[in-house]
Nucleic acid binder design. Structure first.
Lengths: 183, 183
DNA sequence: GTCTATACGCCGATAGAC
DNA sequence: GTCTATCGGCGTATAGAC
């Protein structure tokens, strides 16, 4: 009855969400199959029905990243404030689906997961290209690194299960900085 | 004969260096007691004579970080080019003792090691203070985040055992950016 | 001070019942 | 599709010989 357009099982998505959450909030070491299964409300065996092994789970998470990244690049290219301002604003942690996969992926990159490192490098290249079109090739890296630094600090500021850091004021000064660079 | 000023055993330092190297080059997951002992040229039992457990090894590494950080802040405060330019230049990976402990510590922070997170936050606060004195409080965070972004990308660009990324050109454009922010 | 041997738990993965 | 039971391997740590 459902045919080729059948929705994927909900349990599968729940598992992926749990994996993502554990990576974000407790780090890569805590994102074990046991912990993921428990948070998703299934058994380890049940989890391994949907994903034959952990690598497969990572692969699907990276597909999720690719999709959201493509959408984000589209919005950034079309942003009326300009790509640079959009980039800075979107670099602050807002708990969006895009933020979540990206940070989760970063956790994997940090433990030297090769495929993830490549995807993130590709993402950086995409952002850099749009930034160069906006503020010029000379200043593009400065803006890119500002945004990365914002992300980096947000990740570090978070203890295990800790609260979100306050960075509202930072964004304003970074946006002001971007304006000076553009001039 | 050696009295209270006795040098610490060389094996102890060798173990710490091996731990640091593995964290930097292969990531936190690879820095197991077995691997550290092997690289240091001692047995696991030998290692555990010098450090009763892994936490103790981390603690001593963080002491090393504290010492080198203090020295670095001193140099940054006295730098003739100004604190901001010094900071950007020193943010590029140069394989100095300071770079090495800092990246090693970052690996631990990434897996949510609480004490390490606190030390790194303290380091950031120290740098920010000197940057604010140099480029003004409004632009200090922009400079801090540029440097952090540089560090962040250097860490990500490194595959497992891979080569150092080329970022010479980046530093020039970041220094140019800093000049615009200062104006 | 440094070694070998070993205990013990956790992690990823398999087998097979339901 | 989801479960329980279990295996092999690895990681930390202890015991005790030398």
């Amino acid at each position: 009855m459902m045919g080729p357009m059948a929705r994927k099982p909900v349990a599968r998505e729940a598992v992926l969400d749990a994996f993502e959450s554990l990576l974000i909030e407790e780090g890569e070491r805590a994102a074990t199959l046991d912990a993921v299964a428990r948070l998703a409300g299934v058994s380890k065996g049940g989890l391994l029905y949907h994903f034959p092994n952990k690598e497969a789970m990572i692969s699907v998470l990276l597909e999720r990243l690719d999709g959201l990244l493509r959408e984000d690049l589209g919005r950034m290219a079309a942003a009326p404030e300009g790509a640079a301002a959009y980039f800075i604003k979107s670099s602050v942690w807002a708990d969006t689906p895009m933020d979540r996969v990206f940070v989760a992926a970063t956790r994997l990159a940090e433990v030297a997961h090769v495929e993830t490192l490549q995807r993130i490098a590709a993402a950086q290249a995409g952002w850099l290209e749009l930034l160069a079109a906006d503020v010029g090739p000379g200043m593009a890296k400065a803006v890119l690194y500002m945004g990365d630094g914002l992300y980096f600090n947000a990740m570090l500021a978070r203890g295990p299960g800790g609260p979100l850091p306050e960075v509202e004021g930072d964004v304003d000064s970074l946006l002001a900085a971007v304006e000076r660079l553009r001039g």
